[in-house]
């Protein structure tokens, strides 16, 4: 049973012809955490704001629990949004920030107190009710923003890059906390981010977006291992994308060739650095080492094919390689794309 259903939604902003969101559809199941992942301008934030009711779709339908909410204003939707800039009301203290929505719902004062304190405990801010927003650290402010949404027990929690303004360390801690809380409350969540780490570590499913369209919707491990398009392949993790041609079952690009059992024509060969073995070769070299970086646990070799196409390879013994050396490439796992779709995977 899907809690949220987005059907053929498009958004064209009044001033231009740009389709910020282009014929987008998605079903989110009860208790699921779905990440909208994409570069800036991919339409993911616009989509989230449409679910929250802050933008109106140009066309399409939004359905929550079987109810068409496409044209329902934000204050009447069962959604709760956590903003990137936390958007806490600085003229109220923490308690009042949380209580505002409950007061609007005419909840009894002692019930408000009980629920606010409960949620503050949940986000680890028990006893912070009387604090002023300005007295809190960035991480605490974001926790209050989360609590402000949770206290109203929304059907769907919307998170718009909630950790973008925090430092790396805090970001990692908060995303674990949010994931814990989300799983404990089993609250359906839509999460927007441009950070692949965040998406991979938190999501039940990832929606990769580009130019307002869906590129791929899958579980994180599948998105990583089996990207459906060259864009997804390049966006998630590090991926060597080599554009070349296939003839008679052989893919070739500037002196490098490898068997590829597909029909003749152009193709993009995708190889992860960790799936690319290198051997030193003085004769018949396919590429030349450009730089070797030693990370301690492993090494990274930057190399150039004969036409200067850059390729990265992860090696376990970086001391075997030095700049200027000739190498041969032996990919262990490859994928090939043509016309924006997978044509081969091995």
């Amino acid at each position: 049973m899907s809690v949220l259903k987005i059907k053929d939604v498009s958004k064209i902003f009044a001033n231009g012809t740009v389709r910020a969101v282009d014929n987008f559809s998605l079903d989110v199941a009860d208790g699921e955490l779905v990440c909208l992942l994409g570069p800036s301008g991919s339409g993911k934030s616009t989509l989230l704001r449409m679910v929250g009711g802050f933008e109106r779709p140009t066309s399409g339908l939004m359905i929550i629990n079987g109810e068409d909410i496409t044209h329902v204003p934000p204050e009447k939707r069962p959604t709760g949004m956590v903003f990137q800039s936390h958007a806490l009301w600085t003229h109220m203290n923490v308690f009042k920030n949380l209580a505002f929505g409950l007061k609007l719902r005419k909840v009894a004062p002692d019930e408000i107190k009980r629920r606010v304190e409960g949620v503050l405990d949940l986000v680890g801010l028990g006893g912070y009710g009387t604090r002023h927003v300005a007295q809190l650290s960035g991480g605490q402010q974001q926790r209050v923003a989360l609590a402000r949404s949770l206290v109203l027990e929304p059907k769907i929690l919307l998170l718009d890059e909630p950790f973008a303004s925090l430092d790396q360390h805090l970001r990692e801690r908060l995303r674990e906390e949010v994931r814990d809380i989300q799983q404990r409350l089993k609250i359906t969540t839509l999460f927007v981010t441009h950070g692949q780490d965040e998406a991979l570590s938190m999501a039940d499913r990832i929606v990769v977006m580009r130019d307002g369209k869906t590129e791929q919707i899958d579980r994180p491990d599948i998105v990583y291992r089996e990207p459906q398009t060259p864009f997804v392949a390049g966006f998630i993790g590090t991926m060597n994308l080599i554009e070349g041609t296939v003839s008679n079952g052989i893919f070739s690009k500037a002196g490098y060739s490898t068997p590829l059992p597909v029909s003749d024509g152009p193709a993009i060969l995708a190889v992860r650095p960790e799936a690319l073995d290198l051997t030193v070769a003085n004769d018949n070299a396919q590429g030349k080492v450009h730089r070797v970086t030693d990370y301690g646990t492993h090494g990274l070799v930057d190399l150039e094919l004969l036409d200067s196409t850059r390729v990265k390879a992860m090696v376990s013994h970086p001391d075997l390689f030095r700049a200027g050396q000739g190498v041969r490439l032996a990919p262990k796992a490859i994928a090939a794309y043509r016309d924006n779709a997978v044509i081969h995977r091995a």
Binding site: K5, D8, I63
Partner: peptide
């Protein structure tokens, strides 16, 4: 859920 799934397109709001 099938009741609304028939999927009509909302009119374009200028």
């Amino acid at each position: 859920m099938t009741t609304i799934d028939s999927g009509h397109i909302a009119p374009v709001q200028a």
